[in-house]
Design a protein around this nucleic acid. Structure first.
Lengths: 219, 219
DNA sequence: CTATTTTTGTACTCTTTCGCATAAAATAGA
DNA sequence: TCTATTTTATGCGAAAGAGTACAAAAATAG
């Protein structure tokens, strides 16, 4: 039950004993994530998940556990996906203004993505869901928010050290403003507010943090 | 069915013909709003609503219609409640910095309120809910967000005209930052992040909009 | 070729939920 | 008192949902 594939995970190595799986857990999890991301926890039924993944319910249970466990796994996958997508943007060597703009634009693109309409941010959705009464899910949400706050904080610390921000700038305060931008982008995307009405928030936030267009760079 | 009490609505006037209601629709609606606000649309059952209001289901249907109609009425009531609570704060005669701080503090208090834990902002919740796929609910959400944006925009326009903001300040851009603060306050409150960790966002937003503590008022 | 192991698919149970039918209760008017 | 009208209360019925039992299917080990 809890054995974690004691053998190596290389593709062709020592195949398991019984009937082989007819699906790839990774892609099934990706489909489940899509559904949860779109409809939220309470409004997603196991039949929805079954239809989206192509697995029947017993297979879902066998592979991922019950609905709550699957939600946690889907959420974890979302966070990994986000981390992989945004880490390079934070690590990039570029002026702060450009980096911040690219990060916020990428977030907006992510929040507007979805075959059946914009989905917003999974963490914002989870925070709004009844699932947040679950301590473990709440912990996940808190970690996700904190991770974004810290990533922005480190970004602004570095920028301040590099002279891209005034010496008296407060990286933590600026980080909270950047995270607030993420949250409002998510809310508005989810409300299906047109992209052109949302986009000014990106530039407005960049200006609020980095200062107006090409001024004040040196008092 | 659709007659809207043709007679006057004064308390003692011409009582209706049949058995009188054993409840006050206003308070029942307030209770229903509380439940929807706490659990969201999908996770709230009619039994929950029945228990919270004290009405049995037929009475709920008779008074408010089905679940969706009741949600719309509860949401409408929330917006009226918010408008009544915040209009005086926007209208107040006080320095911009103080007014903005009071508004954001009041919003945080509202989002942290709730007998069973913080509830956040009903509009943010609705945007995250599956109910947003309903065009009418989506329209409500859009209107609520727009109302907040405009209220802040007018506030900053007035402040600029009064010389409390630089002449080149962009009221719309600042308004979007203020609304973003509301959204992040709601998300964090809902995620049960401790109040002391959320409060700095209020002051940080005030500084971002009005400038740092007591400097630069006349650059 | 047989036994063992694991997954798959069907169908089942139990619970919850929504919405409504129906009868009893409470009031106004005749 | 009797009738018309409106609300309340019980509870029905159809549907959906979560989780599981069980047997067939598909692979490996010996």
């Amino acid at each position: 039950m809890v054995q974690k594939s004691t053998s190596s995970s290389s593709k062709t190595a020592s195949r398991r004993r019984g009937r082989p799986r007819a699906f790839e857990p990774e892609t099934a999890l990706a489909r489940a994530m899509d559904v949860f991301w779109k409809d939220g926890f309470a409004a997603t039924s196991l039949d929805d998940l079954s239809a989206a993944t192509g697995l029947n319910r017993p297979s879902l249970y066998g592979a991922f556990g019950d609905k709550r466990a699957l939600y946690l796994k889907a959420y974890r996958r979302y966070r990994e996906h986000v981390r992989e997508a945004f880490s390079p943007l934070f690590a990039e060597a570029a002026p702060l203004r450009d980096k911040l703009r690219r990060i916020l634009r990428a977030a907006l693109d992510l929040y507007l993505s979805g075959e059946d309409g914009p989905r917003g941010c999974f963490s914002v959705l989870s925070a709004s869901s009844d699932a947040v009464s679950d301590p473990e899910i709440r912990k996940f949400v808190g970690e996700a928010i904190d991770a974004a706050d810290r990533a922005f904080e480190r970004l602004f610390e570095g920028a301040r050290a590099a002279g891209e921000l005034p010496a008296d700038a407060d990286p933590r305060r600026l980080a909270l403003i950047a995270s607030a931008a993420l949250h409002t982008l998510s809310v508005r995307a989810r409300a299906r507010i047109p992209r052109v009405e949302i986009e000014p928030i990106v530039e407005g936030t960049v200006e609020a943090i980095c200062g107006p267009a090409r001024r004040r760079e040196e008092g």
